[in-house]
Simulated assay, not measured.
Amino acid sequence: MQKITSHIGNRSKFSKASKLALQLIEAGSVKPGTVSHFFAILEASMSSPGACNDPSVRADYHTLFGAAQGVTELFNQQQKNQFDIWLLHAVVANDLFTDDSFVFSKAVGKIKDAISALPMATADDYTDEAAALAPASKTSTPENKTNDNVPTAASHSLTGDSTHAEVSNSREEESSDPFGLDDLLDHKPKKCEKAQEKTVAALNRKADEEESNRFLKSRREALLKCLEIAARRYRLPWTQTAIDIFAKHAYDNVNRFTKHQRDAIEKLWNSIKEQQIRRKQGKSVNGKLDVNAFEHLQEKYAREKISIRHAVGGGGRRATQWLG
Rank of each mutant, 00 (worst) to 15 (best):
Y126M: 10
N204R: 08
I306G: 11
V57D: 01
E174R: 07
L216I: 12
P55Q: 10
N76W: 00
S36M: 07
P151V: 12
V200I: 14
P135Q: 04
D60H: 07
A121C: 10
V92I: 14
A250D: 03
K191H: 06
A319K: 01
F294K: 12
Q78I: 09
L184R: 06
N169E: 11
S271E: 15
V71T: 02
R262W: 07
A134Y: 04
T5K: 15
Y61E: 02
D177T: 03
A302N: 13
E274V: 12
A302G: 11
V254C: 06
K259G: 14
A40G: 13
L133P: 04
A153L: 09
K31T: 15
P142Y: 05
P189I: 10
N10D: 15
A114R: 05
N292H: 05
L227R: 04
A27E: 08
K273S: 08
Y251L: 02
V167D: 01
F294S: 11
N147D: 07
D177F: 05
I277A: 03
D100E: 14
S140R: 14
V108T: 08
I272M: 07
K248C: 06
L87K: 08
P32H: 03
G70L: 01
A68F: 00
G9C: 07
V291E: 08
W238Y: 07
K198Y: 07
V35Y: 02
H164M: 05
G315C: 04
C226N: 14
Q69P: 00
T159D: 09
D186C: 03
G282W: 06
G314L: 09
F257S: 09
R235Q: 12
D148Y: 02
S137G: 07
K288E: 13
Q276E: 10
D182H: 12
W322G: 00
Q79A: 10
R303Y: 04
P49M: 10
E172W: 04
I111N: 01
L158G: 00
A27K: 01
D125V: 06
S6Y: 11
E197W: 01
D186M: 12
T241S: 10
E197F: 03
S271W: 14
Q196K: 12
D124Y: 01
R233K: 13
S218V: 05
G9S: 06
D95G: 09
R256K: 15
K145M: 09
D124S: 10
K106A: 15
V103M: 11
K19R: 15
L42I: 02
D54L: 11
D186H: 10
E172G: 04
A136L: 13
A114Y: 02
E304M: 05
D208V: 02
A302D: 13
A44V: 06
G316Y: 03
H89N: 12
V30S: 00
D161V: 09
V312Y: 10
I8A: 06
E266L: 13
